[in-house]
Amino acid sequence: MNDYPFGPLFERMDGYAGRSGKEVVQQVAGTGFRGTHSRCFDFLPDGGMSELYDEADLVVCHAGIGTILNCLERRIPMVLVPRTVVCRNADGTPDGQEEVAAKVEAMGRAVALRDLDGLEPAIEAAEKLNIPPYRRNRDLELFLSALLEELSAKKKPENKRKSRNRRAEA
């Protein structure tokens, strides 16, 4: 969790850790928050985060794509907390995170939070989710792979021409 303004969620998760006795680890990203019952850190390199994901039984996070992709791959149930749940936009407009959260919830892999007061029931509901195996969508990767191969093939004759020209000049 590394996005302003998630302070109220950090506090609630810290309280939940105290009441439930469960181990809660929070990425608080330079907000200065330090919990009484939870272990807090600012940032970790990739390896450190991977270890945390591997050990996690449940992830409570904002509806950011990076965290979601990591959890999907590891079949970790999620409670998604769009930033507007913690802090409504000043003009009352919706936020893209709400839509992302709804999409992942519809996949049956997360519970999307709509009110911070519903946090603990949402955690309980997410713990009961039966997460099926996840197959990463590789369509774009395959398309890009073919495109780069095509571009690379076009570039090779140019390289040969250039080296022939250089040899001729020499």
Binding site: G64, T67, R136, E141, L144, S145, L147, L148, S152
Partner: peptide, 18 residues
């Protein structure tokens, strides 16, 4: 960083050979 980097890494199979 964050999700943008993660999305790039998800496409690693396409670009890592270059």
């Amino acid at each position: 960083w964050g999700g943008h980097l993660q999305e790039m890494m998800e496409l690693r199979g396409a670009w890592e050979a270059y």
